[in-house]
Design a protein around this nucleic acid. Structure first.
Length: 613
DNA sequence: CTAGGGTTAG
């Protein structure tokens, strides 16, 4: 059978980096072929222990010792050497061992293919897989999962499917390892239908199969399916592990289900999964997204073995909640812990700078990327342009875009456009809009921005065109919604609605509160209401914005000391922002509002964003 | 003696 691989028949001429020569101490009893044959089990066990402890130097020493003794390596030993280098993330050293091995068993092939798959070299993994077939080795249930994994890395479900065929032909599709790897591959390639079909047909399923399926649903935003499967796995008495929890906690975070998330956290503790930094990262993100940054910090402090994901999620949490100083402090601590930032780390820091208007710091961290060998991507540029644009430095922002070594994307020009709108530079806004149009396709979020930009400079025809694009695509303006979790459910509100069973009390409470606020000095600002309506209507529209309804609901239902956490899908309008400040002052409550970009902590008449948002 | 899952941004 011919596999649709991405490369021609494998070439073994890829240069292997030489094994580092170490100070070679001849052993007291020189190793010869006979003693090697007799003692290979001891050697294997020794290699295994070196692999477990990650001792690169000792492993290399033994390797070069064997090489220098001129002994023919037997497959089992080469297999262990390949594994040693694989675990130490030196796949080309593994390849060297493989190529030098005079005898290759299917185990040797297997470890080589899995080495490439584990070290993110999917094309090499598949080339070797094919070479193995050419060399007359039948694929077995140990090798196939690695080959499938390589397909998953490349997001090639077509290639993966040919592996699936191979499994069926060779009667391996019922094997739980093969099945799980295929489920995972289909899930990663967004082919949930295939994944689920296979999953349902598997005669034997273990936690890996379940986790893969749950991960797939979580990835596609099918939260209910993911949670349902998790529940079934839990009820089925499977021993859930940190892999499962990291996916399912992510689901809670994405839907801001704080109470359910807390229950998941408890389960993690119960099942001893709470020390994993993968679970920790999802927990931090969950608590942060739900507005409980204190709990996020707690998780961060409790997990001892912090990986990069942990640091990044903590940085994001602090940035989202406006703890800018803490972001810089954490970044410094990362360095002293020997943790190397990646592109996400930098994005987090830039995000923090942008939300606090810290241009100098932003420039510093942007420059730092070079030092860490991180190539600035379009998102980094977009972030910088956003920072400069918001701070009113439109000239510098434009200069940065002009000097970009890569093609500026829609998000880069969009950031400039936002800055122009904030600072009333209509000319530059129209220029940026032209550049976005030049890129060809405009994503739906940008049409309104473009239309407004053209209208502002009097180019009405283009403004209308931009709006028409939106209509043609059938995109409706997103309805502003606010929601709040109470008891076992989420209460959602739209502006001016009266569907909620406590509507009467909510509107009464708002009226009452408004009087108190006015006494404290609140004056309604209707200038931001765009629709051409009378003043009376304007104040009606603003008075019952969804976040106000949600807050009023919380005020009449929550116990007095409980912080009020509101989620909103759109930006908070400036009048509501002012109003909520007064609300926090008049009621003495802590009110936390998450809009589509960030968090606002209102307390005692002040907001954590410092009115820069 | 060998094999299959994950986190973090927007």
């Amino acid at each position: 059978m011919v596999l649709p691989l991405l490369q021609d028949p494998p070439q073994f001429s890829r240069p292997s980096p030489p094994i580092q020569t170490l100070p070679y101490k001849p052993p007291k009893n020189p190793l010869n072929q006979q003693s090697f044959q007799e003692n290979f089990r001891i050697i294997c066990n020794f290699l295994l222990s070196l692999t477990r402890s990650g001792s690169l130097l000792k492993g290399q020493a033994l390797h070069s010792h064997i090489v220098k003794s001129g002994i023919q390596i037997i497959p089992l030993v080469s297999h262990h050497l390949i594994n040693l280098y694989s675990k130490l993330q030196r796949p080309f050293d593994s390849q060297f061992v493989f190529e030098e091995a005079p005898f290759k068993s299917s185990t040797t092939w297997s470890s080589m293919i899995s080495t490439f798959a584990q070290n993110d070299l999917p094309i090499l993994a598949l080339s070797y897989f094919r070479a193995m077939l050419y060399n007359g080795f039948a694929p077995d249930e140990h090798i196939l999962p690695s080959a499938v994994k390589a397909c998953a890395i490349m997001s090639r479900h077509d290639v993966g499917m040919s592996m699936h065929c191979l499994a069926v032909k060779n009667a391996m599709n019922l094997d739980v390892y093969v099945g799980s790897s295929l489920v995972d591959m289909y899930a990663k390639c967004a082919e949930l239908g295939y994944a689920r079909k296979l999953f349902d047909e598997m005669p034997e399923r273990n936690i890996v199969s379940w986790s893969g399926m749950i991960y797939g649903y979580a990835q596609m935003g099918e939260d209910n399916e993911a949670l349902g499967l998790f529940k079934r796995a839990l009820e089925g008495g499977l021993s859930l592990n940190d892999f499962t929890f990291s996916s399912v906690i992510r689901v809670c975070g994405n839907s801001t289900l704080l109470e359910l998330g807390r229950q998941m956290h408890s389960l993690c503790v119960k099942m001893n999964c709470d020390s994993s930094s993968f679970v920790g990262s999802s927990l931090i993100s969950l608590y942060s997204k739900c507005g409980v940054v204190e709990n996020a910090c707690q998780v961060f402090n409790e997990v001892v073995d912090k990986n990069l994901g942990m640091w990044n999620s903590m940085l994001i949490a602090c940035a989202q909640h406006g703890h800018t100083k803490k972001v810089f402090e954490l970044f410094g601590r990362m360095k002293s812990c020997g943790m190397k930032p990646n592109f996400i780390t930098i994005l987090c820091v830039l995000y923090a700078c942008s939300h606090a208007g810290l241009v100098k710091e932003g420039n510093y961290y942007f420059g730092l990327m070079k030092e860490y060998g991180i190539e600035p991507g379009d998102q980094h540029y977009a972030s910088m342009v956003d920072l400069l644009g918001r701070a009113g430095k439109l000239g510098e922002a434009t200069k940065l875009i002009k000097e970009m070594p890569i093609q500026p994307t829609e998000s880069v020009w969009g950031a400039l456009l936002t800055g122009c709108r904030l600072h009333g530079n209509t000319e530059l806004a129209a220029y940026a809009a032209d550049r976005i149009l030049e890129l060809g396709s405009v994503s739906s979020g940008f049409n309104v921005l473009l239309s407004n930009a053209y209208a502002a400079v009097g180019r009405y025809e283009e403004a209308a065109k931009a709006r028409k694009m939106l209509r043609d695509r059938g995109v409706k303006k997103e309805t502003g919604l606010s929601w709040v979790e109470e008891g076992n459910r989420v209460h959602t509100f739209a502006a001016g609605e009266r569907q909620h069973f406590k509507s009467k009390e909510i509107y009464e409470k708002l009226g009452e509160l408004e009087n108190e606020m006015e006494l404290a000095g609140y004056v309604m600002d209707t200038s931001q209401v765009l629709r051409a309506v009378g003043n009376e209507e304007k104040s009606e529209a603003i008075r019952y914005h969804s976040e106000r309804l949600a807050i009023a609901f919380a005020l009449i239902t929550f116990p007095p000391e409980r912080p009020i956490r509101i989620m909103k899908n759109l930006r908070v309008c400036s009048d509501c922002h002012t109003a909520i400040k007064f609300m926090s002052k008049c009621t003495g409550r802590l009110i936390i509002v998450r809009d589509n970009k960030r968090f606002h902590h209102f307390s005692g008449g002040e907001c954590s964003c410092g009115d820069y948002w």
